[in-house]
């Protein structure tokens, strides 16, 4: 995925540098990359390995008594509630990511094409809320979505609804609304970057060839901004899948996500092996789409050739 994001933000430099012979001698290159490898092994591969080993244990804390077992896997396979939870989490992450992208696209479009000299200010305004506490922003939605909250009061006052609002708070919908709000600016930025890279004369050319504005958008603008759309989708999908704070605060019993169960396994049940297993399962789910997209972008780049 990082490769993909790289391509989104630096498509030119990326394609130029891949084919070039490195000017740095091999020995020096080794010593330059060395620290990166150490860092990766220490903070990425080693913890992953430990977590993977944990899934085969029954006892989390006593490392001396090593008992290799598939018991956790058996339990995971035999417990449908885990599967349901995983599926629901994937579904919610998908909905949140899709809605964020749909909601962010017009914002990105305005920033890229219509903001003119206000562009930097608009980007600032998008980012500013993200500087306040995440917890605070989630809690704010409790006030808005609550049964005597802002939303229901306004709807009641306008006469759109007659009684106190159908309960929005403590539902999966509340989680989705809150998370779309939280992620929207982060989804807008990669899309805006991708839109910004579209040569304006391509849009003129489409218009010149008889394409009405919506046809120009569907045939030229949207396909050319797809790298940004995919990046935005992943930016939202991946962290949402592991989300546990928002479901805990606004989700209620139906809004529980896999992240909450993992959190429970580690902190309350003290069942680290099961928590590790669920984490690995979640990781696999994230890796599948990321792998597909990385493969797809590699193929499309190869197909495009390197004549430039």
């Amino acid at each position: 995925m990082s490769d993909y994001v790289n391509q989104v933000t630096h498509p030119v430099t990326n394609s130029r540098t891949t084919n070039k012979e490195s000017a740095i001698p091999r020995s020096l290159l080794g010593s330059l990359i060395g620290p990166t490898w150490i860092w990766l092994v220490l903070f990425m591969l080693l913890p992953m390995l430990l977590m993977f080993l944990m899934t085969f244990r029954t006892e989390a804390f006593n490392w001396r008594e090593w008992e290799f077992t598939f018991e956790n896997y058996r339990k995971f396979i035999e417990t449908p509630s885990y599967h349901r939870l995983l599926l629901r989490s994937v579904w919610m992450a998908f909905v949140v990511a899709a809605l964020s992208v749909v909601a962010a696209y017009p914002v990105a479009y305005v920033v890229a094409f219509q903001a003119g000299r206000w562009r930097n200010l608009m980007i600032m305004l998008l980012i500013v809320p993200a500087m306040s506490s995440f917890l605070l922003r989630v809690l704010a939605w409790r006030i808005i979505l609550g049964s005597s909250g802002l939303l229901s009061t306004v709807l009641l006052g306008l006469g759109i609804i007659d009684e106190a609002a159908p309960i929005l708070l403590y539902t999966p919908t509340a989680v989705i609304i809150t998370l779309v709000y939280v992620w929207l600016p982060f989804a807008a930025l990669p899309i805006a970057v991708a839109l910004n890279q579209i040569e304006p004369n391509l849009l003129e050319a489409a218009s010149d060839l008889g394409a009405k504005p919506y046809a120009t958008f569907l045939r030229i603008t949207l396909p050319l901004s797809m790298p940004g759309v995919i990046a935005a989708f992943l930016f939202v999908f991946i962290p949402t899948l592991g989300e546990y704070v928002t479901p805990a605060l606004v989700g209620g019993p139906e809004g529980v996500m896999i992240g909450n169960i993992i959190w429970d396994q580690f902190s309350r049940a003290l069942n680290w092996p099961m928590g590790a297993l669920l984490s690995m399962a979640m990781l696999l789910i994230v890796l599948i789409p990321a792998g597909f997209i990385s493969l797809y972008s590699k193929i499309s780049r190869e197909r495009a050739g390197n004549y430039d």
Partner: peptide
């Protein structure tokens, strides 16, 4: 119809 300076072909 127009032929653009840098061609503006749809990539």
């Amino acid at each position: 119809n127009m032929v653009f300076q840098d061609y503006a072909l749809f990539p």
